[in-house]
């Protein structure tokens, strides 16, 4: 315990420096996109976009899945930035649910169609496990940028914040990945892509407490006050 509260107040006031209030979560999401998109574009160019991309864009299911995956990633980013603002509307956490439901529904429908058309064996074609690593590669810079931005906020819900941030980074990484990676059957898409996004999200959530915590945040002022 610090000796007296009045002394603590005096020390904190003496050391107070000007700070710029954090912009609202929507604006911060736009800033995050500004950092992430150039990186994604560069990686996509290096990996060469799919040859049949123009044909794929005319497939409504592909478009719905991509738009919903992108929106899910963006909504997760907004939600992650909202979790670090004390007193912010918790309802924002529900925003990513809708695009996620659309994404899953579309993929689930695709799975059923594949199963009906090709049978179980054909639908379980071997899939390139590098998919997961590609999601990590695409999501790396967006993920790091998000961690840096989130650490400026209050670690009110460290695990939840990290899990949603992981979802946002992996979601946007997955969106970019499908533009460069050969299209696969929906069952394997569901397993590797959606599964990969969720595994990254769970891993990020598990590490959240180490990255975002009050102890790290208050240590400098606590030390200077003692």
């Amino acid at each position: 315990m610090i000796k007296d509260t009045e002394g603590l107040i005096r020390r904190l006031a003496q050391n107070v420096e000007p700070v710029r209030p954090l912009p609202n979560p929507w604006i911060r999401t736009a800033v995050w996109l500004g950092v992430s998109v150039p990186y994604l574009v560069v990686v996509m160019i290096i990996m060469t976009p799919q040859q049949h991309l123009s044909a794929m864009v005319s497939d409504p299911r592909f478009v719905i899945e991509q738009i919903s995956a992108l929106l899910a990633g963006l909504a997760a980013a907004v939600a992650a930035f909202a979790t670090i603002i004390p007193g912010y509307r918790r309802r924002l956490l529900l925003v990513p649910l809708l695009p996620f439901v659309v994404w899953f529904t579309s993929l689930g429908q695709g799975c059923l169609q594949d199963l009906a058309r090709h049978g179980v064996q054909a639908s379980l074609l071997p899939h390139d496990p590098l998919c997961f690593l590609f999601i990590v590669l695409f999501g790396a810079v967006p993920g790091i940028a998000m961690v840096v931005m989130l650490r400026r906020g209050a670690p009110l819900t460290p695990r939840l914040t990290a899990a949603i941030a992981g979802l946002a980074a992996a979601g946007i990484g997955n969106f970019a990945l499908r533009l460069v990676h050969p299209e696969d059957v929906s069952v394997m898409m569901l397993v590797w892509h959606v599964g990969g996004v969720f595994i990254l999200s769970v891993l990020a959530g598990g590490a959240g407490h180490y990255v975002f915590n009050w102890r790290l945040l208050t240590a400098p002022s606590r030390n200077s006050a003692q």
Partner: peptide
């Protein structure tokens, strides 16, 4: 008080103060 000091940048002056403080 230390927490308020550490995250004072998260306060948006266009919003009420007490809900922000109570959340902390």
């Amino acid at each position: 008080l230390l927490s308020v000091h550490a995250v004072r940048a998260t306060y948006d002056p266009s919003r009420p103060f007490m809900p922000w403080l109570l959340a902390i």
